[in-house]
Write a protein that binds this DNA or RNA. Structure first.
Lengths: 333, 333
DNA sequence: CTGAAAGCGCTAACAG
DNA sequence: CTGTTAGCGCTTTCAG
């Protein structure tokens, strides 16, 4: 069913039908005739063909690293909030933490006719660099700061530092660090930096054996912590993500250790998970939703050609202390 | 940058360039000439235009009700697994539980040139019915059984019944039901039916005041349970989703009630959340990932025109008993 | 092996 | 107000 057939059925020209769908000049009679045919056939013009013609799809592509992630969901939520009202639709691509997928989907969007891209970044490889460069539509990067691109990101270093300081203030003399790969600049490198800075400030020694690498799962936090506990009982653990912290607390619990008394634990992200655990988790709230909204606003400006140079926006954090650091009792859900 | 320009730069015809990208007959010299230009310009053919021409995008659209949901993530994971190897890409649309969005995105996919659609259903309205009917590409519906369409869904009734029976077997004389709207046939109506069936089997009375309505959040489970606890202390609660159960357990805990001893709690879905709570949650494991895989296989068959009539596939469930029903100690993360 | 030409479904001048 | 015409960027006969 295409515009020509509809035109024939309604006894008008293709142009008239096109105008019907694009509020052009049209007599009431023709309008009615077309309306009838459209109603009856359920015809809708091919967005595909329209985009090819007008070079504008009103779709924006979002590349994200994970699906089942609260932070991702919050960012995307913020994006929708800003974009829905402007008549844009979101096309999401889940890369399942695979950089190759990220590149592939960025390329899909490049050739697929979206008007703009929001990229929830994780790791940047040369391939990313080159596909981003070849992207001739506006892009905004969220959660990572990337030289030369419009970015909205968080104060990962500050948040990590604040969490580590809190552990120390609450009595940890030798806080452990369980983090993720430094190839992820924000969640890996910067948070690690924050941890190191806090130790330095407190004049505590930096020990390589106190810094352990996990992936983004609770399972890996659990495993790593078990290994540690086989050797000794740390008095505090700073985890680069709440998810890792969940695993750590689970391991402590199984070892009969009281989280918040014997072992202090803190994470980053303030996820819902950390509010329902046996001992509620101290964390740093990051403004994920706001970052999504801001990124969308940036993208809108860029798409309207109002992009006055490259901007990069850093958002702050909020310390949320709960029972896992021995502080005040948690707020409820 | 389009095919014509590339052809000009390489000193060949458009056709040759097209063949370069579609493994057609081409002399080595021309191939090399084109390769050089492509390399240098970073040109990639417009998927957009190609699709218009060949009526095939190798993209499949997935409409999903929520982002930050483990079940959704597992289903999508399964879909990717089956589809990635076949060279298809997934375009995800998040409807944020808004039926209007569902209809809008189904329509986007209808006119946007995807080759097939997988619809993670929630509630069906007449608008859904009509947009589904007008969709002239293959569709598979997941998690709901919908007359006349290819579906993959779960034994919601059986799972709910098994959970309720378990509560009764473990000593609950008057299990409460906290469920979601029956407009969601699978998660609302069927699970409620399962609860009712279990009560009937056990010859327990059905009381309207013991069946409460929540939305899909922990917060609503928490609120509803607080209201109940203000009146009396139930000996068991069956929740239609794990998320609701999380809220319920939180409310119990705040009220100083021992979950698994004084109050038994069970949910459905076997989510990761339920494994890290203070008292690990008894639940029914549903085969979400498998449902995604099966749905993708069905879609592939349909797209290949091997759709031997409408099929509907029901998957089973597994009872996972943990401490919240007083049974054996939980497995760890 | 190669290129010219037709056309996918649509919109935007342009001339009535 | 309306229809004719010319493409958007690509693939695919069809003759060479």
């Amino acid at each position: 069913m295409n515009i020509t057939e509809i035109a024939k059925l309604a006894g008008v020209s293709k142009t008239a039908v096109s105008r019907y769908f694009n509020q052009g000049y049209l007599s009431e009679e023709k309008r009615a005739a077309i309306a009838a045919v459209v109603e009856q056939t359920g015809y809708a013009p091919s967005e595909q063909a329209r985009t090819l013609r007008v070079r504008r799809s009103r779709q924006i592509g979002v590349v994200m690293p994970r699906l089942n992630s609260e932070s991702t969901a919050r960012v995307v939520d913020g994006i929708s909030l800003s974009l829905a009202g402007e008549g844009y639709q979101l096309l999401l691509a889940n890369t399942a933490n695979d950089p190759a997928n990220e590149v592939a989907y960025l390329d899909t969007f490049r050739t697929g006719g979206v008007d703009g891209v929001i990229f929830l970044g994780s790791i940047f490889t040369p391939a990313h660099k080159s596909v981003l460069k070849s992207l001739h539509i506006p892009v905004v990067i969220v959660a990572q700061q990337y030289e030369g691109y419009n970015c909205v990101y968080h104060d990962d270093r500050g948040a990590a530092r604040a969490m580590t300081e809190l552990l120390i203030r609450r009595g940890s003399r030798r806080p452990l660090y369980l983090g993720v790969t430094a190839r992820d600049r924000a969640a890996g490198f910067d948070r690690h930096e924050g941890y190191l800075a806090a130790l330095k400030d407190a004049e505590l020694p930096l020990r390589a054996e106190d810094m352990l690498l996990c992936d983004f799962t609770a399972r890996s936090g659990y495993d790593r912590m078990r290994e540690v506990l086989a050797q000794r009982t740390p008095d505090g653990v700073f985890c680069a993500t709440d998810t890792i912290a969940i695993g750590v607390m689970q391991a402590c619990r199984e070892a009969g250790l009281a989280v918040g008394r014997q072992v202090l634990v803190a994470g980053i992200g303030d996820s819902a998970l950390g509010r329902v655990t046996a001992v509620p988790l101290t964390s740093a709230h990051l403004h994920y939703k706001t970052s999504g909204q801001e990124a969308a606003q940036m993208l809108l400006r860029l798409m309207r050609g109002q992009g006055a140079g490259v901007r990069s926006l850093q958002l702050g954090y909020e310390v949320v202390e709960r029972a896992s650091t021995g502080g005040p009792e948690c707020e409820t859900i």
